[in-house]
Design a protein around this nucleic acid. Structure first.
Length: 678
RNA sequence: GGCGGCGUAGCUCAGUUGGUUAGAGCAUCGGAAUCAUAAUCCGAGUGUCCGGGGUUCAAGUCCCUGCGCCGCUACCA
């Protein structure tokens, strides 16, 4: 196979620096990038692999306040922990930087300036509420007041829930800050907007050339374009961020999504400086033949396919545009969506306390969420490690090497002539290596994993068919040939599987006593004589108990999480009179039907004791109308009626909420409708 | 309700531009073998390819429709 040398700049999406790495990050943008990079390096292409942390923004500044440290401390802590985790998984970036590192600010400001000078950034003065107590500008949803249209209280600054009309926050009557409860003052504030509509035609033409992009990515981008691009604010009033490079703009910083992708550039520059060749970054960024490939999760698609290329295209320097954006879908855990806030995930740090990094690499590669969401379960993890890595590959290596040691002192020469079976077997294996190469270069890690396991299966089959344990007694040369072929197969696996499980394949390569470097080209260089070193097990098995242990840990975490929830802020104490103001009665549900055009609302007709009322309840996700009819439940009935989706609701159903799931309350014994609760 | 995705063997999934008896791994059962990590190899299966219509010589694959599930989104008084 002829290979043309290429130039790659590979990135993994910057990870937000307010937490640790979990297996979702790995499956989404790190492992697939690392495997691709390792393959390209094996082939001999010039690859630079860049990443880092996304360091600015409100959540980090809030977290810092909570922990009473500086935002930089938070960022540094997580940046460091991520490096350790990546190291543990053998994911080797050429540079892992962070957007709070020195040169990033300048690069981001330059991007801003160039776009500004070219007329792609608009300045807008907008009126915004300002909370003097909190010393923050309040975004619309942090302001409440009376709706100017329906005069209902509790309308948010962006929309009134009562009448559903969109509101300009400035029109709110008696506005209040949701943060402090104070009356905010109105201040003019200036923000800068990226004029995305101006880019529309250009982007469309550019995207037309990306015929090779994955379907899910292309569809996503097209739907964005078809809806029409909006001007987007790229600045915020905040103290933790990059100041914008204009006169008299104190307190204005770049919005994180603007500066984050520039981190790829500044990280490359940081790398160039570290290796003592400060201009080397140009070989990638200013070289039109560079293929820049962004690995990321699906949530990051629009930024990298629309906004980022738009930003890049208007710089003074002719930067390369993204060549491909192989976005992955999501990884679920034990059948449920992963969630860090619910603590439903596996932290890399924790994983590494129990298992080898290689095993996670293998399982996530075999089951990567390439075309749709996939599921990680500990039982599947165990099965794959035991039946695939151990039984098929590990055992093939072991039986071959041990046999060679025992009868030939580990020295196996290439026979002068091979039998038809041997030739065919090797030919089949070689054919697969081409296929594997194609899988790697088209980001199909799942396929590549299956394909190198298939090579090992061919090896086991060949071993069984030739029966060297019999050959050794009748014709020693024949047995030697069999072992030679198996060793060749192992050699080829050690190369083809190394992007996925680099550590163990290096061990295998060394075990076989091969002295030429481990490169893709050397697949075709047959070894003249093997000299096997000490034979070791390549993999260990995972016990069922270990699976149970991990499941237990997951459960345990859920409980911890609940404890934290209970700590959540309590409301102020109230007087008994306040409680007495509430009229809560048991009502009987007479009728129930879904509200049209809604999948969450159910319209109820209830008997509250001699009187019927209609009620709208937002329980449609957890209850079907049929199961509600006839039930007796408590309701708050002296709440001001209100119109929801065109229907008046004259009471409020009481339900407990647990992780978004609603559970309607029931009296312990059967009581008459109308009974009051006190 | 809107947008997007999914529904193929017990389980996890492949099925390229529509083309012969629908595949792989795991699990199950039977057999062979004993070099090896109780590992391996051979054989056996089972499928209304979610339902219903349509286009076509031909549909798991394209179109319409219904059902079910998931994600984002609006509606939780």
């Amino acid at each position: 196979m002829e290979i043309i040398l290429e130039n790659f700049l590979v990135t993994s999406a910057l990870t937000y620096a307010n937490g640790k790495l979990h297996i979702g990050h790995i499956a989404g943008s790190y492992l697939n990038a690392d495997i691709f990079v390792r393959y390209q390096k094996l082939v001999g292409n010039d690859v630079l692999y860049i990443g880092g942390t996304d360091d600015y923004g409100t959540p980090i500044s809030i977290k810092a306040e909570e922990e009473n440290v500086s935002p930089q401390d938070i960022v540094d802590k997580f940046n460091k922990s991520m490096r350790v985790d990546l190291e543990g998984l053998n994911i080797q970036l050429d540079n892992f930087s962070g957007t709070s590192h020195v040169n990033h600010s300048k690069d981001s400001q330059d991007f801003f300036t160039n776009l500004y000078d070219a007329g792609y950034i608009k300045k807008k003065v907008i009126k915004q509420f300002y909370d003097e107590k909190q010393k923050r500008f309040l975004s619309d949803r942090y302001v409440e007041g009376i709706c100017p249209f329906c005069k209902e209280e509790g309308a948010r600054g962006d929309q009134c829930d009562n009448c559903g009309k969109l509101i300009d926050a400035m029109d709110l009557i008696e506005p209040k800050s949701k943060l402090s409860g104070e009356v905010p003052i109105i201040k003019d504030t200036t923000h800068w907007y990226l004029d995305l509509p101006k880019f529309e035609d250009e982007l469309r033409n550019w995207l037309d050339t990306k015929t090779y992009w994955k379907d899910n990515v292309k569809n996503f981008v097209l739907s964005w374009l078809n809806e029409g691009l909006q001007e987007r604010a790229i600045t915020r009033d905040l103290n933790w961020g990059i100041p914008i490079p204009l006169e008299n703009t104190e307190g204005k910083v770049l919005y994180v999504w603007f500066d984050a992708p520039i981190g790829y550039l500044s990280s490359t520059k940081e790398w160039a400086e570290k290796i003592g060749e400060p201009d080397r970054w140009k070989d990638y960024w200013l070289n039109k033949d560079t293929k820049m490939i962004h690995f990321l999760g699906k949530d990051n698609i629009p930024f990298h396919t629309i906004i980022w290329p738009a930003m890049l295209s208007k710089q003074k320097e002719q930067f390369v545009l993204p060549h491909d954006v192989p976005a992955n879908e999501y990884l679920n855990l034990e059948g449920q969506k992963m969630s860090t806030s619910r603590n439903w995930t596996v932290w890399v740090e924790d994983y590494l306390k129990y298992f080898e990094g290689e095993y996670l690499r293998y399982v996530l590669a075999a089951n990567a969420p390439e075309t749709k969401d996939s599921d990680f379960s500990w039982e599947d993890f165990r099965m794959r490690i035991n039946t695939e890595l151990n039984n098929v590959l590990g055992n093939l290596a072991n039986r071959t090497c041990v046999f060679s040691k025992k009868y030939f002192d580990g020295k196996i020469k290439r026979p002068a002539k091979l039998t038809e079976l041997s030739k065919n077997t090797l030919a089949e294996v070689y054919k697969l290596t081409d296929t594997i190469g194609r899988s790697y270069s088209s980001y199909q890690v799942r396929k590549a994993t299956k394909q190198f396991m298939d090579i090992a299966r061919i090896g086991n089959k060949y071993f069984d068919e030739t029966q060297p344990w019999k050959e050794i007694k009748s014709d020693k040369n024949k047995a030697s040939e069999t072992l030679y072929v198996c060793l060749e197969i192992l050699r080829i696996i050690s190369i083809t599987a190394s992007p996925i499980i680099p550590k163990s394949m290096k061990i295998l390569h060394d075990m076989l006593g091969i002295t030429i470097p481990l490169t893709w080209d050397n697949i075709s260089k047959e070894t003249a004589e093997y000299s096997i070193n000490n034979v070791d097990r390549l993999f260990r098995k995972i016990d069922e108990k270990e699976v149970e242990e991990q499941l237990e840990i997951l459960k345990q975490r859920q409980k911890e999480n609940v404890k934290e929830d209970i700590m959540i802020e309590h409301k102020p104490l109230i007087e008994y009179d306040d409680f007495m103001k509430l009229e809560i009665r048991i009502v009987k549900i007479l009728e129930a039907e879904r509200v049209k055009k809604s999948n969450k609302l159910i319209k109820l007709k209830v008997n509250i004791g001699g009187e019927e009322r209609s009620v709208i309840a937002g329980v449609g996700k957890d209850y079907k109308p049929e199961e509600l009819i006839g039930k007796k439940v408590p309701m708050l009935i002296n709440l001001k009626p209100r119109i929801v989706m065109g229907v008046e609701s004259q009471a409020m159903i009481l339900a407990a909420e647990d992780e978004g799931k609603l559970s309607i309350l029931h009296p312990d014994k059967d009581v008459m409708e109308g009974s009051e609760i006190s």
